[in-house]
């Protein structure tokens, strides 16, 4: 059996990939996908720790995270479509009506 630290490392790597994606990319769609990667990194940690401790909390938490991620994706994509209809772009740097 693989020990929890290995899983925690994997989850940290996934989370890190997600964070870099959010910070570095300009396409809103890619940013949304990176957020999902972050959340899945979190899920790996929850499930690994839960199964190592024999505790149900970790698994339940992972289900909750998936549900919330789905709801968030629905709202995010809806906003994205509304934005695309007005602006015809999904580049985050084009969002500059509001400043200072």
């Amino acid at each position: 059996m693989i020990e929890p630290p290995a899983y925690l490392l994997l989850s940290a790597i996934l989370f890190g990939i997600g964070v870099v994606g959010v910070v570095a990319r300009r396409n809103i769609l890619i940013i949304l996908m990176s957020v999902e990667v972050m959340l899945n990194g979190v899920n790996v940690a929850f499930v690994a720790v839960g199964s190592y401790l024999g505790d149900a909390t970790g698994g339940i938490f992972a289900f909750m995270v998936m549900t919330v991620a789905a709801a968030e994706a629905a709202v995010g994509l809806a906003l994205l479509i509304a934005l695309y209809r007005i602006r015809e772009t999904i580049d985050i740097t084009e969002l500059k009506v509001l400043k200072w």
Binding site: V19, V35, M38, E72, L80, L83, L95
Partner: peptide, 25 residues
């Protein structure tokens, strides 16, 4: 635009919030 910015940063921060919970767990 306000909604999109709020949403992106909100979802991003939820990620941190959750990862914090996972590590505490």
């Amino acid at each position: 635009e306000g909604a999109m910015k709020y949403f992106l940063l909100g979802a991003f921060s939820s990620g941190f919030f959750l990862y914090g919970i996972a590590l505490m767990y």
